[in-house]
Simulated assay, not measured.
Amino acid sequence: MIVKRAFLFAVATFAVSAPLQAADVDELNCQIEGMSDTELVGVVDHVVEQGDPGDSRAAPLVRTLADCVRRHGWSAEQGELATMFTLSIAGQSGTSEILTASNIDVSKIEDAVLGDAVFLDAIRSRDMSDAVIESMVDRHISVIEEAVSGQPNPGQFYELIGQYMMFRAMAEVAAEQFAES
């Protein structure tokens, strides 16, 4: 239950940043609500480890997607966006947990992502190329360096921070596009 509450809290924070109505939040919770805590932990691990799509830990996504499509009458696009949102929330949750456990404050990193219109526009157009990511990192290198200052080996966190930024942006865009669909 603790895992599910953490996911639902992450979803609830989107009501502040994305133009979601209560019904949209309830629908976006559908896949999360349909999984057990054990399945949610498996999905988080699968996403953070960038597991293979055939990995059994991803199976709950397929099962819950079918249930949610049936329950809410989602189109194929809405199903894709809801799954993108769930995967992104899983990745955001997992990377945030690791970073926070290492005393890295993700709030400034999140602010940088949500304030980066260029990066969010690239995600909206599904452009997640190396050039887009490098450009985003270049724009926010001072925030990233500040987040890892004081760490004995700050370089070990750069990739994880990049993943967090990508997951956060993808979740934001998926929620926004779901609300518009």
Rank of each mutant, 00 (worst) to 15 (best):
V3N: 10
K4E: 10
R5Y: 13
F7D: 04
A12F: 08
A15M: 03
V16N: 03
Q21Y: 09
V25W: 08
L28Y: 06
N29L: 03
I32K: 05
E33Y: 06
E39Q: 15
V41S: 14
G42C: 14
V44E: 14
D45H: 15
D45N: 15
P53V: 12
D55Q: 05
D55R: 07
P60W: 06
L61W: 13
L61P: 02
A66M: 07
A66D: 13
A66S: 11
C68I: 11
V69F: 10
R71N: 13
W74R: 12
S75G: 03
G79P: 01
A82M: 02
T83S: 09
M84H: 00
F85G: 00
F85W: 02
L87G: 04
S88P: 00
I89A: 00
Q92Y: 10
G94T: 03
T95G: 01
T95C: 03
I98D: 06
N103P: 05
I104V: 12
I104A: 06
D105A: 07
E110V: 12
G115E: 11
D116M: 02
A117M: 14
F119M: 05
L120V: 06
D121C: 05
I123P: 06
R124Y: 12
S125V: 15
S125A: 15
D127T: 04
S129F: 06
S129P: 02
D130C: 13
A131K: 14
V132P: 04
I133S: 13
M136R: 15
R139I: 04
R139C: 07
I144F: 15
E145W: 13
A147H: 04
Q151E: 14
P152I: 12
N153P: 00
G155I: 06
Q156S: 14
L160C: 01
L160N: 02
I161T: 07
G162A: 09
Q163S: 09
M165K: 00
R168E: 12
M170T: 13
A174N: 00
A174D: 02
E176Y: 11
Q177C: 01
S181F: 10
